[in-house]
Write a protein that binds this DNA or RNA. Structure first.
Lengths: 214, 214
DNA sequence: TGCCATAGTGAACCTTAATTCATGAACTGA
DNA sequence: TCAGTTCATGAATTAAGGTTCACTATGGCA
């Protein structure tokens, strides 16, 4: 007995609205606003309704994280797969990630660094891992092409990911300046440095190219 | 009206015992065991007594963190101040930090990466910052000596600190192998890579020297 | 039109530790 | 020895949200 399409649509829409409200709340003022009752009211549903769509608070935020993160990982993945030397791709990937993060500073800060409940924090680790996985692929390519030093790709990828994420934390902090020119300079420094650790030969300074589609 | 010396000693000792019990509990099984009642019983005092020595749970763990972290930061600081090129010091500092962390794997994991309550997490950030500060001093030295690329020392230090900490997380995970030979190799990779991003010239492979005193 | 499955409601309930505090013990100096 | 003060105790309280659930509203379908 199939449920009417209209009704199904309704369900999907409501779920999306809750996810949206949750994302917005975090993007606006971080984890302190990540309360079920608050999200529900923002989404225009009752508190209890949230539990028709999500098993728990942790589940809800795991899905929010997945939603946002998948987009970022996809952007990085696209650059990883793109034309160009591994070195250039790596710099571009990091630069693009950094620029995008700074653009949605508050949300990025929450998703990357802001102290939050252990359950949610655990979900963040998956995101970092997924990102590191993309980097690792690039590392393998660079090693194969002789551009990068020969080293365990996973260790290298962790180092790279850790480097640019940690360096981003300061600039992402809610009170930091969202200024655009300075931000670009910082992103460039971060990308240059983070990638540099892998270069086998002294490489002519690579100018990072933002490959942001939207 | 001075309190008798004996009594004062008693107080200091009790406080130390509570701190110790807290550290041990975390070192043994992480934040899930970081409950006041449990710590109190481990320390051989009543739950309420903990509050004679610490304002709150967060305060207690902030002090535990400070205690452990200060030691690590001091070890790094000593290496930062030591003889030798900035490059060699940097490699040594990271290597030593990594080796020490792996030695006290469970505790290091808890202090660096394990999901925990927001209040405690916030205290961790100070530790990271203090460590980054030490690295930053070394970066400045390296730049002044012409060994490192010219770059904002704080950004560079964040990158370096982020790189080796992130790369350590995997090996520090409670279920990871505590094996000693493999551990050294990993520590060496991490140190080599993390430092490499700063080198101006292709540097002959530096062999990290563990400068662990104890 | 009336039935029924399904979604929505939101106040009440729980859970889980942190925190408090009334009480008593112990030690101090006189 | 005795009053005064400090310290220890641990059961009871609090707090803060997450989660539940008995009830209502809705909309498709015969």
């Amino acid at each position: 007995m199939a449920i009417a399409a209209v009704r199904l649509n309704q369900l999907v829409e409501t779920k999306a609205r809750i996810l949206d409200a949750a994302r917005e709340a975090v993007a606006l003022s971080g984890w302190k606003d990540a309360q079920i009752a608050l999200i529900a009211s923002r989404a225009g549903v009752a508190t209890g309704s949230v539990y028709r769509y999500f098993d728990s608070k942790a589940d809800l935020y795991a899905q929010v994280l997945a939603l946002v993160s998948e987009r970022e990982v996809a952007v990085v993945a696209a650059i990883v797969e793109a034309e160009g030397s591994a070195s250039q791709c790596l710099v571009d990937a990091i630069y693009t990630f950094a620029v995008r993060a700074m653009r949605g500073r508050r949300l990025a800060y929450a998703l990357i660094a802001e102290p939050c409940e252990p359950e949610i924090d655990a979900a963040r680790l998956k995101y970092r891992a997924a990102l590191a996985d993309q980097i690792a692929r690039l590392v393998r390519r660079g090693i194969a092409d002789g551009e990068f030093v020969e080293i365990d790709a996973n260790v290298a990828a962790s180092c790279v990911a850790g480097a640019f994420m940690e360096a981003l934390v300061g600039p992402l902090a809610p009170e930091a300046v969202p200024d655009s020119d300075a931000a670009k300079a910082i992103a460039q420094s971060i990308a240059g440095l983070s990638a540099r650790m892998l270069f086998r030969h002294p490489t002519p300074e690579l100018t990072p190219v933002s490959r942001v589609s939207a």
